[in-house]
Simulated assay, not measured.
Amino acid sequence: MEGTSLFLPLLILLMQCSPCAPVTVSTNKHKVEVREFSDAELSCMFHTEKDQNPRIEWKKKGKDVSFVYFDGHFRGPFEGRASIDGATVTLHRVTQEDAGEYRCEISAPFDSVSLGETNVTLKVLVPPHTPTCDIPSSAVTGSVVQLRCRDQQSIPPATYSWYKDQQPLSVAQHANASYVINAHTGVLEFKSVSKDDSGQYSCLASNGVGSPKMCDGKHMTIEDVNVTAVVAAVVVVCLLVVICSCGGLVLHRNGFFSPGHGGRSFWISQGHGAVAHISSQTLHRADDTSNVNYVPPPQEPQDFKHTQSFML
C-alpha cells in the first residue's frame, strides 16, 4: 500500500511534465487528379494540443492568394459549389479554373505551436477534343510534304496517330521509310512523296482521359511534274528575253539612247577665232536678221585655238 501511494503522485507528475503534441496538419493525398466536371476531394486532417475548436482556412495559390473557405463560409467562385467535412473540402463539378495548388491552414491559439498547414495540388484532366488537321489536297512527286494534327485543349497533352485509307500508319520507322511520324507534335512528314502516297488521311488524338477523337479524313493527291509544260514555259521566257535584247540593241543603234538625240548640232563662229556650238532648234528660233554665220566644225584640233565654247 505504501509503494502504491508513492507511485500515483509520481505518475501524475510525469504526465504533467511530459511534452504535449502541438497542432499538426496532414493530408492523405497531396496530388489530386480528377476529370473535368467531376468532384474533387481535398483532404485535410488535423490534431490539436489543447484547442478543441481551431480555426479552419483553405486558400488557393495563384498570382494572388485567394480564400476558398474562411470564417465558416466558402468564398468567391466556391460559394454554393463546395462542401466541408471536418477540414476536408469537396469541390463539385470542377473546371480548369479550379486547377491549382491549395493550402489547408489550422489555427489553434491555445496550443504551443498555434499554426499548422498542408498543401494539396489539384489537376483537372480534360479528354481529347476533335483535333485540327492540316492536310494538303495535292503535291508533286519528289517534294517534301507535311501533314499536321493538333488538339490544344486536352490535359494531359494528347498523342497522335495517323491513318491512311482508314488503316493505321506505323509509328515505328525503318531506314527505307518514306515518312516520319512525331506522335507528340502530330506531324506526319514525307521525305519525298510518290504517287503511291495518294490517299485519304486522318488523325487520331488520345490522352488516356475519355474517348480518343479523330478529325475528318481528307484526300491528298500526288501528281507527276508536267515536264512538257515546264519546257514550254522556259522556251517562252527565253524568246521574250531575246526579243527584248534585240529591240534594245536596234533602238540604241538608231540613237534613241544617245544624249544628243532630238536635234542637229552646229558650230557657230563668234569672231576673233571663237567658235560656239548650237543646235538646229536654236537656229530655227533665231531672228532672220541675225548676222550669225554658219561655220563648219574644224576637221583637226590644230586648225584653231580653243578660247571659249558654250552649249545652248
Rank of each mutant, 00 (worst) to 15 (best):
H174M: 06
M214E: 15
K164G: 07
H219V: 06
A274E: 11
S138W: 02
P296K: 11
V242T: 08
P156Q: 06
G72P: 02
P297M: 12
K29H: 10
D288L: 12
M15D: 12
R264L: 13
H92Q: 11
K59I: 15
F310K: 00
E36C: 07
Q166V: 07
G142F: 05
A276I: 06
V171C: 04
M311L: 11
E223I: 09
G3R: 14
K50D: 09
T95C: 01
R253H: 11
Q152D: 13
S114H: 14
Y163F: 15
T130C: 10
D196M: 08
S18Q: 13
L239A: 12
T121N: 10
I222E: 00
Q270F: 09
D224L: 05
Q167C: 05
K61Q: 14
T289Y: 12
V295S: 13
R75V: 07
S202D: 02
E117F: 15
H73P: 02
S265V: 12
A139M: 02
C215E: 02
F7A: 15
V94G: 00
G210Y: 02
V295T: 14
T4F: 12
K63H: 12
S290E: 01
L240W: 05
K123G: 11
T121A: 13
G273V: 07
I56K: 00
H184N: 13
V25G: 01
N53H: 11
A158K: 02
S198V: 01
N28F: 08
W267M: 11
S290R: 08
A158M: 03
I268N: 00
F7M: 14
V225P: 04
L251T: 05
R285T: 15
V236F: 07
T221C: 00
D111V: 03
T289C: 09
D64S: 13
Q299S: 12
R103G: 03
N119Q: 13
S66R: 13
A21M: 14
D134E: 12
S198A: 05
H92K: 09
N53T: 15
N226R: 06
P22W: 05
F7E: 14
T4M: 11
K60N: 03
H30M: 09
S258N: 13
F74D: 02
F310N: 00
K195F: 04
D98T: 04
E41W: 05
K31E: 13
D303Y: 08
G262S: 05
K218R: 15
V292N: 05
G86P: 04
K60T: 03
W162I: 01
C215T: 01
S279D: 12
Y163H: 13
R81E: 06
N291F: 10
L251D: 08
I278Y: 02
L91T: 03
L188M: 00
W162T: 00
W162K: 03
A99H: 00
E41K: 15
F310P: 00
E300D: 12
S245L: 10
N28P: 03
T132A: 14
F256A: 09
A158R: 01
D224P: 11
P156K: 06
F67I: 04
H73L: 12
T95G: 11
K195A: 09
P301N: 07
H92F: 12
S170E: 12
